[in-house]
Design a protein around this nucleic acid. Structure first.
Length: 192
DNA sequence: TGGCAGATTTTA
DNA sequence: AAAATCTGCCAA
């Protein structure tokens, strides 16, 4: 497995959202290593997308979204859960890809311990769940995703499966945009 | 299986 | 008050 080059994150945001499907997210935490295959993503754009956190300018929370492509944007949602995003657009432009679901690959015992369940389909199917399973939290906000702790990798294989484009989940504005992408039929996506 | 309340921070 | 969520509880 090879680390994704920085150039990968400089593509258009929707292209990154599609391209991340099938890629591997790896975290070397003090507790151990976890990794999963990305099976579901969502794109959040700076133009004509009021659901994007950056749509109304920079705040303390979303500042990382305006960082260079390949940065992590981790935020707290509903006061309880964290969501992990990959920043895509050039420095100063607020766009990102939300990682919504992983197929667990490595460190399943650690994931189960963190999640409090050993049901594989419940370990990382959902943005809050995958952060919990992977041990991703506020300390990763603004992290460089081509570093040594939290990074994206590729096993070199092209994704053979179909990619479905659908409406995004959990938003109440810009609901019609087909900016959610997932691998058709994959059992680890957050919902059908 | 499906709907809903609750947990709790950030923002408007 | 609503939000890029998840869990447990309830009813059928």
């Amino acid at each position: 497995v090879k680390r994704l080059p920085k150039s990968f994150f400089k593509q258009e945001t929707t292209a990154v959202a599609r391209g991340l499907l099938g890629k591997i997210l790896v975290h070397h935490s003090p507790d151990g290593e976890t990794a999963g295959r990305i099976v579901e993503t969502e794109a959040y754009l700076c133009q004509n997308d009021p659901a994007c956190h950056a749509a109304r300018g920079m705040t303390a929370r979303n500042a990382a979204m305006f960082g260079p492509p390949g940065t992590a944007y981790v935020y707290l949602i509903y006061g309880m859960y964290y969501c992990f995003n990959v920043v895509t657009a050039p420095l100063g432009v607020g766009e990102a890809v939300l990682i919504r679901a992983l197929e667990p690959l490595t460190g399943l015992e650690l994931m189960a311990k963190r999640r409090g369940t050993c049901v594989k389909k419940l370990l990382a199917a959902g943005p809050g769940r995958l952060c919990q399973a992977m041990g991703i939290g506020p300390g990763h906000n603004g992290a460089d995703l081509s570093g040594d702790v939290l990074y994206l990798a590729d096993n070199g294989m092209a994704v053979r499966e179909d990619i479905v484009a659908a409406k995004r989940v959990g938003i109440s504005v810009a609901t019609e945009l087909p900016l959610r992408f997932y691998i058709r039929g994959n059992p680890f996506i957050s919902r059908k």
